[in-house]
Amino acid sequence: MADANGNLVEVTGVDKVFHRGSEDIHVLGGLCLKIPEGEFLALMGPSGSGKSTLLNLLAGLDRPTEGSVTISGERIDQLSERRLAGWRARHVGLVFQFYNLMPTLNAARNVELPLLLTHLSRTERKKHVEVALSVVGLNHRHGHYPRQLSGGEQQRVGIARAIVTDPTLLLCDEPTGDLDRKSSDEILDLLQALNQDQGKTIIMVTHDNDAAKRASRIVHMNKGKLTTDAAA
């Protein structure tokens, strides 16, 4: 749920420092960012610019050293580990560059994973999985294991897993980074459809200009700061 100004995500004065032995590595410095609900934002920048770190903070996978991260009006940087895990399960869908599917589970079981954390019955879970797989056009391959699927298909299963709980926010870390052009286009078409047809707020980290052009807004980062912020 967005705030009064329509912002779903609000990052305020965020610093992130990693400690490597006696050395402090400043990855993000005083970063501020607001993302309205329903936006498709592409986050670009060179390696080490802090894109993935910012994505991790937005996903509640890590905490800022300073500053606040507010999503749907909730300060997620202040939540306990347990509550943060619950929050992730309810509000965030994650899509990874290398899909990160469980190799021993078939497509349907992989998509079902986040639903195991809900109170849905087996039948209800099955129904949700069917819907998610049909959204990504893979209902016919529900019984196939990741090794039996192409890269593009695996990523579509990854997207189905990300959307199966109907999350507030879809966070994609280089979702087309491991795919050929054709498969990349299919994935980007799918993300665009999710944004435009279902109103999903999407934040996508990418190195690919063509992929970024599919977003409604492109934010560039360098050395832990936002450098440019413009509509695509």
Partner: peptide
């Protein structure tokens, strides 16, 4: 990595 993914999906420690 799989365990990290499970946690990212919302499984608690």
């Amino acid at each position: 990595q799989e365990i990290a993914v499970l946690k990212a999906l919302g499984f608690t420690h």
